[in-house]
Design a protein around this nucleic acid. Structure first.
Lengths: 234, 234
DNA sequence: CGTTCGGTTGAAAGTCTTCAAGGAGGGTGG
DNA sequence: CCACCCTCCTTGAAGACTTTCAACCGAACG
């Protein structure tokens, strides 16, 4: 089922932003909206690579795991992000919705054809992939070299940045409150920690007055300056 | 100074493999060979993004570090790999030669022009970038979830894979010996460990008869099967 | 021949994990 | 409508693994 791109929430920011209206209408003919429920898995590691999509709304995770079940989240997809593994027969990681989500999905053949026809599309995809590679490498510094405190502080700042401005409440000159799309366990899987360590660090930050936790899924950044200092990034 | 692509060691495997002879000769006009000495840094994090190159010979590292000096290696570049950050004004990480290295360097303007003119080049670059993203994400599982033993075992298998078949000696049906392009400290920076832990794990593997260490820079995989089991990957 | 750099090894310390128990919130069914 | 259950979160105590600190070794190099 098609959908009017004109009132798409990510018309200006997703991959399709590189296309003009004519080109877009052709792409639109092959795209279809898909709604995912929270927790639903779109693809499993080892599946044939058939899914190519823009995230319209919601947050998804990309994850891999060891044979004995340890999991690592290796990517988070927010609205306007692109999902799909070209040039590979199979995908290497699971993709699961962390919240209810809307996707604009393209079949592989059609997407590849569009990529061939619209050089701007390919250029934009290359640009996004390189940006994602940069983000991923920055994340490696966190995984390999940061302490639990630094990891949690970094994570909170990072998620705030990605969720802003829609995903938060509070006056722009005051503390902002965010609804976390991840459980403590999922945060642990992002940071390479255990759920208990994440919980303890959050409690410490709260006790220190750096953050507030209005509810289990919400976090208020009371002192982002202190958080920055604790994150100790580059 | 130009160079004959015809006898380039990576003519068939680097980015330029996507070009025919005519196209290649045009690219060749703007490329120039650069030799790097071991330890030499090609670019620092924060530099303007001006370097675009194919690795012809040698091994380079990409690394970032925290303000207080902890370092994490976030990428290793082997012959035929591409180096360069398009679509960004500055680069986010250092690039340093781990061994003496040969590069085929292109100026930014010329490389971008070639990218515009030769769609195959852009396609190949997209393909390589996506493959690199996959490798990087797999590496995140190691950093976030694996034990020191698993990390070292994984690293040895990984480097053997990348160095084969040129970088090793030994009969193809027997144990193969590799010259490590990294010091213990650099291996530690790849794996998110300390130099002491790497050293201890290597000693343990040697004691267990899984590897041999003919010299400080060489490693022989006596029991790759055991190494695989210890790496415990996906 | 001394210095330096990289590597190894030991002992102590620290951080994070593991194991365990309890609590809060939300949905379901009696 | 309330009890129950399930999931997710928190907290404590003990333990394990990796790091830190320190000393020593060996090869390369001036």
């Amino acid at each position: 089922m098609n959908h009017a791109c004109a009132d798409c929430a990510v018309r200006e920011s997703a991959l399709c932003a590189s296309l003009n209206d004519d080109e877009l209408s052709r792409l639109n003919r092959i795209g279809r909206r898909q709604r995912l429920a929270k927790g639903q898995t779109l693809q499993f590691a080892g599946d044939d690579s058939l899914v190519f999509a823009n995230v319209v709304d919601g947050v998804l995770k990309l994850s891999t795991s060891t044979a004995d079940g340890r999991e690592q989240i290796v990517g988070l997809l927010y609205p306007a992000d692109f999902l799909g593994r070209l040039f590979a027969v199979r995908v290497d990681y699971d993709c699961t919705a962390l919240t209810d989500a809307d996707l604009c999905v393209f079949p592989r053949a059609g997407f590849e054809a569009a990529l061939n026809d619209f050089q701007k599309l390919e250029r934009d995809l290359l640009e996004r992939t390189m940006a994602e590679l940069d983000r991923t490498r920055q994340w490696m510094l966190l995984l390999g070299r940061k302490s639990a405190e630094e990891k949690v502080a970094s994570f909170l700042l990072n998620i705030a940045e990605r969720l802003r401005p829609e995903g938060c409440t509070g006056r722009s000159d005051g503390p902002q409150t965010y609804v976390l799309p991840l459980t403590r366990g999922q945060i642990a899987d992002v940071l390479g920690l255990t759920i208990e360590t994440v919980s303890r660090q959050m409690t410490r930050l709260k006790s220190a007055g750096v953050i507030a936790l209005p509810s289990i899924r919400e976090v208020t950044l009371l002192r982002p300056d202190l958080l920055e200092a604790m994150a100790e990034a580059t």
